[in-house]
Design a protein around this nucleic acid. Sequence first.
DNA 1: TTTTCCATGTAACTCGTTACATGATTTC
DNA 2: GAAATCATGTAACGAGTTACATGGAAAA
Lengths: 175, 175
Amino acid sequence: MERELLLLGLLRRHSMHGYQLHEVIQRSLASCADLKKPTAYALLERMAQRGWLTAHEEPAPERGRPPRTRYTLTPDGEAAYHRLLRENLATYQPTTFPGETGLAFLDTLPPAEARALLQDRRALLADALAAASAAPPHEGALQIVVDHQRHHLRSELAWLDSLLARLPAQGDITS
Amino acid sequence: MERELLLLGLLRRHSMHGYQLHEVIQRSLASCADLKKPTAYALLERMAQRGWLTAHEEPAPERGRPPRTRYTLTPDGEAAYHRLLRENLATYQPTTFPGETGLAFLDTLPPAEARALLQDRRALLADALAAASAAPPHEGALQIVVDHQRHHLRSELAWLDSLLARLPAQGDITS
DNA sequence: TTTTCCATGTAACTCGTTACATGATTTC
DNA sequence: GAAATCATGTAACGAGTTACATGGAAAA
């Protein structure tokens, strides 16, 4: 659902063709959403069939370039956008972290090795945080999203550090 | 991959049959992993074919009950477990939050409505935190996982509160 | 009498990804 | 001459879920 919301939200600002949409998402939303090209095209087609979008075949902008299909939001699409947006905002989907599975079995490893592996994870986390912090300010509410990303990464880093700090206490992890 | 790691880690403690595994996961790991029954059975079968597990057909424990298949870790399974565990611990997979999509378009809603919707989200988040905090202590490294859950939920709640606090400043969200 | 529990699955489906095809045009 | 850019797709695949089937026994 949230991929449809994303496309609708972008098309609401101004109509675009699929390639453009994919570019915008890759370029300025890569941290919070990734939408592959075939997925984007398929979703656009499906939403057009539902009547949420109209598809306009446009001739090539420059010669030698393929023609493009411009998608525009319909009133039904606008209604769907608001419905999806309200549902998304009012809902909380509990997140399940793939990294937690390993943590559940941390006590099956010698503490020294556990420590070393988690140090690797810490380095990757720190990189991600640095990348997120270096991002230029975004327009409008997009800034809220990158702000949330940063907050989450900082929180994860702090927690991992606290885990590392209490880790190697003579082999007893839970003490 | 992390579902396989989960099953291997549980089977490493003691051999079990599929139904039992699913019960354990639902009961004491529901917060950090959910694994449906058909998925569990399919994974067990696949790992048995790979030689990571051996499958023992056991007669019914009580009469009238169906027979069960007990899965036991092989040395290959033990090796796979350690490989998957090391990879999981040393890696960080950036999380993408479904709830962020809506936030990216928060400025398309009247601030009062945005506020009301996010209050709903806040209530769900608070519920989740209460549930996680009420959970009894878990054995061994499982406690680390619920600890991480709690930390994350607290962090999310704090961030959402900070967002709500700076939200309705005369309609300009980014100020 | 209907429902629930045990224990195992199968079949169909959704969702999304990867890899590839097309075809002209510009860049290395 | 090879590779990248634009713009659209198709085909195959993978992972996971939902809904259902089975069949006897115990509980509501």
